[in-house]
Design a protein around this nucleic acid. Structure first.
Lengths: 226, 226
DNA sequence: CATTTTGCTTAACAATTTATTAATCTTGCA
DNA sequence: TGCAAGATTAATAAATTGTTAAGCAAAATG
């Protein structure tokens, strides 16, 4: 991941709720941004690229479901966790929400404590997901848990950025990742690094692996290919 | 796409609306042109070749629907996004607008913020469409995600411009693309390149593919045909 | 706590690839 | 035939990426 501090975006039209939740999440080390309606939620999503988005269903401008649907349609937010805030008995919202790509629900009313532990659990869940699946491609094996890559069963130590970059490219072999996509995913879109930074990391990966598995597509990006 | 800065044309007969919308869009990095009536809208459309045209329905000289109908009849504006500005409850316009090739509607009144996010969403929508679908024609397969063309399952590497050009022609097999259309689409209409530039790229594609799939229509343009 | 190591980024320059132009042929057709 | 449009080719320009070394900062080490 690009950053250590997890970013959470909360959208709700009740200022009190926003305040109390964001205060408690901040206490627990999250970076919180709030939005008071659907449109603002989308705008903030683009600005800060949160790891988790909590959407109240009922909001002015654009309701939570619309926001979710909208964001899920963008490639930038495929990996973002989106959860809804719903009234306890609102079955309909649950069904609709899942249809449009929500990851989970939080039912109102909810205590700050429970909220924090819920949020913690979301991140634990994806951390597991993200890290637990080894990628195996020919004689190359990427082990997320060990942060090690094996080639012909020989371990190769990559630095963090190198490892993340390789994992990202290898997550979809053959697909070209635009330089911008890479920057967004590995560095985060608020970090600005020079043009040659990606190249240097690519070079180190190629060097350490010793095999030609990363192809340059000039003017476009890079792709992983064996 | 040929250019990074998206161009928007707004046509409305209320100067205040033009001003406030164009100001806000400009803030968000769009290049905005305005027109105060239908005829001017058409004139400007030809001059700047916008990526998005926003037309008020009710305008002097030529109303929005007429403008849309007119532009859609020209090959130059097939790919342009055209949206209407309509009063909230004007159902009739909606129906008519769709008939004449509008892509969407924006209902008045609208806040500048919402307008900007709407415009953003239009561009995201087409960006996605443009990039993600593979084209398959006989033994030829164009894979935008991989930036590779396959012929008989053999990958063929094309340079960026070559790939874009081929993709463009192959997007509508059999249809002749005028040299001007090609220039507009691949190079953008502010870039000026010599007459022979297209030819050279066409030649390289023909050479690399090894099959005769691009037909010259003398004095007109090129078309893709297997 | 000082020292060493490691990782990340940048800057400068080299190398490569791609894009464009210009010059020279071909070809079809009035 | 002679012209106009396009094809071809090679040369040049422009853009993009590769490489290397160096500077920092953070982490690891003793």
């Amino acid at each position: 991941m690009a950053q250590e501090v997890k970013k959470v975006l909360i959208a709700d039209d009740e200022p009190d709720i926003l305040e109390i939740i964001s205060y408690n999440l901040q206490l627990h080390g999250y970076k919180v941004t709030t939005a008071k309606d659907g449109e603002q939620a989308i705008k903030m999503a683009y600005e800060i690229h949160p790891d988790l988005i909590i959407l109240d269903i009922m909001m002015p401008k654009k309701n939570g479901i619309e926001v979710c649907k909208y964001l899920r349609a963008q490639t930038d937010f495929q990996d973002t966790i989106i959860v809804f805030l719903t009234a306890l008995n609102d079955e309909l919202s649950h069904v609709k929400g899942l249809e449009f790509g929500a990851d989970d629900f939080i039912t109102k009313p909810i205590s700050p404590k429970v909220m924090v532990s819920k949020v913690d659990s979301f991140f634990r869940r994806i951390n597991k997901q993200e890290s637990s699946k080894a990628i195996e491609l020919g004689e190359l094996r990427i082990e997320p848990e060990e942060y090690v890559v094996y080639f012909k069963e020989q371990p190769i130590n990559l630095a963090k950025k190198e490892f993340e970059l390789l994992s990202y490219l290898a997550s979809k072999p053959g697909r070209v990742f635009l330089r911008n996509e890479i920057l967004n995913k590995i560095w985060g879109n608020e970090v600005i690094v020079g043009d040659r930074t990606i190249d240097v990391h690519i070079r180190k990966i190629r060097q350490k692996l010793g095999i030609d598995c990363i192809t340059t597509v000039k003017g476009v990006g890079y792709k992983f290919e064996l």
